[in-house]
Design a protein around this nucleic acid. Structure first.
Lengths: 149, 149
DNA sequence: ACGATTGCTTGCGCTTTGCAAGTAAAAAGC
DNA sequence: GCTTTTTACTTGCAAAGCGCAAGCAATCGT
């Protein structure tokens, strides 16, 4: 299931991995909504189907954007956590939201408008850094161990 | 063919439009490689199929990312040009390239490394602004008229 | 006028997506 | 310790999207 790349263009190569309906939505849910278990994702607002979720989590792990982990006291529930490579997607997500905010309201007027959106308007880079910091702090307080399967 | 939106999340809504293998590749080809005619796109390194190209150009026009135009002296060849909404995607493309540069070389070692990549490493925002400016200057010197079909 | 070029559309097979249902294993309840 | 529930998937099948090849109409070059 390794992704194959169309060419050597860095733009196109990023889209060979990220260019689909779900990959970045899953990353968003982890980064912003704090989702980390299979169940968390199935209960999302976007309602991803379990077979798609399963395949996408596999792909994300294969390319190194997330790692599959467990809490020491729970042998059933898997934890899916962003790696550095995954956290590095934050600026992309912020730019996507910024574009929606500025250019998608005519087509889709009910896009949410909140404090986060204000922060993005004020300083995108700072907002991205804050998100990454928040996630790293969460990681530090989450006890988990890596599994190799 | 209007896109429908999964929910009111600005991240997800952007991906409802942009989350696919081709849309942002086409925008990249227009912005960076200067492609503007149907033929230009078919001759690209990425080799998009004509039926897909046709449907994606239609979608891009419908959502207002590009406009379909002709040169006054040529009744056959259509020109596809980025609107302001389309040009506003530049920071997203720059972030995608930056991520590829920093995190995709282990999976795909032959990603190109050139002057543009150096510029992105040095100052992403400045590079995005330069790209937009370059495209706007090109637009100013390209004679064209809008067609309503 | 005639062939080449451009900008598509159509047909068909393959892959991806998506819903619903089922399964296996761990955890919780009694 | 036996049953029920929860979690994390897998499987089956229908629908949508993708992709190659071919075809076609309009315009352009000569």
């Amino acid at each position: 299931m390794r992704p194959d790349f169309r060419c050597d263009c860095p733009f196109t190569s990023a889209l060979d991995i990220l260019g689909d309906k779900w990959i970045l939505v899953i990353v968003k849910q982890m980064l912003i909504e704090g989702k980390e278990t299979f169940k968390d994702f199935t209960e999302s607002e976007e309602a991803i189907a379990t077979n798609i979720l399963s395949s996408k989590l596999k792909l994300l792990e294969e390319v190194g954007i997330i790692i599959k982990t467990k809490r020491p006291d729970n042998k059933k529930t898997n934890l899916y956590l962003l790696t550095d490579k995954g956290l590095a997607l934050t600026p992309i997500l912020v730019e996507l939201a910024s574009w929606s905010d500025g250019h998608l309201r005519d087509l889709h007027p009910t896009i949410v408008q909140g404090a986060a959106m204000e922060a993005i308007r004020h300083d995108k880079a700072a907002f991205a850094r804050a998100l990454e910091k928040q996630y790293r702090e969460k990681l530090a307080t989450t006890s988990h161990k890596h599994t190799s399967g």
